[in-house]
Amino acid sequence: MSTLVQNGQNGQDGQEERSGGSTLWIAIRISLLFILLCGIVYPLVSTGLAQLLFPHQANGSLLKDKDGNVVGSELIGQSFADPSYFQGRVSSIDYKAEASGSNNYGPSNPDLLARVKASIAQWQTENPDVPADRLPIALITNSGSGLDPHITPQSALVQIPRIAKLTGLSAAYLTSLVGAFTEDRDLGVFGDKRVNVLKLNLALKEKLANNEYPK
C-alpha cells in the first residue's frame, strides 16, 4: 500500500485532498473487490441458497407425467402440430427454447397482416364449426417470448368442437377439463385468467390412454 493514503489520520471529516495517484489506486482496488463480490460471490451464494431452499423451482419447474417421465417445463410452451391437442399461441421460433423472441412485426407491417390472414384461413379449415368472429386474438398473435405456455380460457374453449370430433371425447367433458385447468389471476387480482396448454394436453393425453382410444 502506498504511503500516500496513510498520511491523514484526522478522522472522517478531514477535508484534505489526497493526490490523484492515491485516488486511482483506491479506484482500482475497489473495482477488483466489487468484481469479486458482485460478479462471483453474489451469484454463487444466490445459487446455493436457491438450490437448498427451492430445488424444484430453481431447476426449471420440470413437469412429469404419471409414470415419472419429464415432459418439459411447465413454464415453457411446446409446439402442438397435431390438431387433436389444444394448440398454443403463434411462435415464430416454433417453441425452440434454446432461444427466445418474436419477429417483432410493427402494427402496420404487411407481413403481420399476411401471417394473421394465413392463421385465420387455417383455423377455418380445421374448425369448420367455429366461425372466425369467435376466434380470440390471443390464439393468432405471436407471444413476446415465442414460448408463452398459456392461452386464454376462451382460446381453449373455442378449440373444443374440433378436439371432440377428433378424439371422440364429449364436449361436456372437455369443457370441464378446461375449467379444471383454468388458473385464476394471481392472488385473485393480478394478471389474466389463463390455461397452461402443456398441463391441459398432458391430462388430455392421459385420459385418452386410459380410454384406450387410438392416439
Binding site: 399461441r89 418474436s102 417483432n104 412485426y105 402494427p107 403481420l112 397482416l113 394473421v116 390472414k117 385465420i120 372466425a132 368472429d133 369467435r134 376466434l135 380470440p136 386474438i137 390471443a138 393468432i140 398473435t141 405471436n142 407471444s143 413476446g144 417470448s145 408463452d148 398459456h150 392461452i151 386464454t152 376462451q154 394478471g191 389474466d192 389463463r194
Partner: peptide, 19 residues
C-alpha cells in the same frame, strides 16, 4: 387486425404474454 373479423376484444396481443 380487428378489420379481419376476429374476436379482438382482448386488445393488442401481438408481442404480449397471456399471463
Amino acid at each position: 387486425l380487428e378489420a379481419l373479423g376476429i374476436d379482438a376484444s382482448q386488445g393488442s396481443m401481438e408481442g404480449k404474454e397471456v399471463r
